[in-house]
């Protein structure tokens, strides 16, 4: 389910079946010219990944809007902000919360998160339209889907 009215109406009718939330964590920082190309590229890729995972597992996963944060801020602040999101999400009957990110900064604070962190190393540049990139992304989606499914059993 996506964060769209039609999907959410369907969600409200089938709350018991949709028990997982996927929150992409996307850094945002305009100030540094050096990181701009790579961070925007990674932001694009992570959203494609999230959308594709949602497509495969529509009936059980709600994809939320991504959590954006300044890359330079202290992760502790962001952890508490993220956990507030989770608290709110859990007001609904969700059992599994997954975070999807390329930012290794989250890996260090993983234990403080109220959910499962799916961190994966991502390439910093490339051509999203190329056949190779599509194949890589498709592969990653398959494996991430498998991982998410393993939490359901």
């Amino acid at each position: 389910m996506k964060w769209k009215k039609n999907d959410i109406i369907q969600y409200m009718e089938a709350k018991d079946f949709i028990d997982s939330v996927l929150i992409p964590l996307v850094p945002f920082q305009v100030s540094d010219d050096n990181t701009l190309p790579s961070s925007t590229f990674q932001s694009e890729v992570i959203q494609i990944l999230a959308n594709e995972i949602e497509k495969e597992l529509t009936g059980r996963v709600l994809l939320t809007p991504p959590l954006h944060y300044l890359k330079s801020t202290n992760k502790d602040t962001e952890v508490s902000r993220l956990n507030q999101w989770v608290q709110d999400v859990k007001q609904q009957p969700f059992e599994h919360v997954f975070f999807l990110t390329f930012d290794s900064g989250w890996k260090k604070v993983e234990k403080e998160l109220d959910g499962t962190l799916l961190w994966l190393p991502g390439s910093k540049s490339g051509n999203l339209q190329s056949a190779e990139m599509r194949a890589v992304i498709k592969d990653q989606v398959d494996q991430l889907g498998e991982l998410i499914r393993s939490y359901w059993v």
């Binding site: 369907q10 089938a14 079946f17 949709i18 497509k55 495969e56 597992l57 529509t58 009936g59 059980r60």
Partner: peptide
């Protein structure tokens, strides 16, 4: 597309 809730 699954006819239940749309998974693959």
């Amino acid at each position: 597309i699954c006819k239940h809730l749309g998974c693959v």
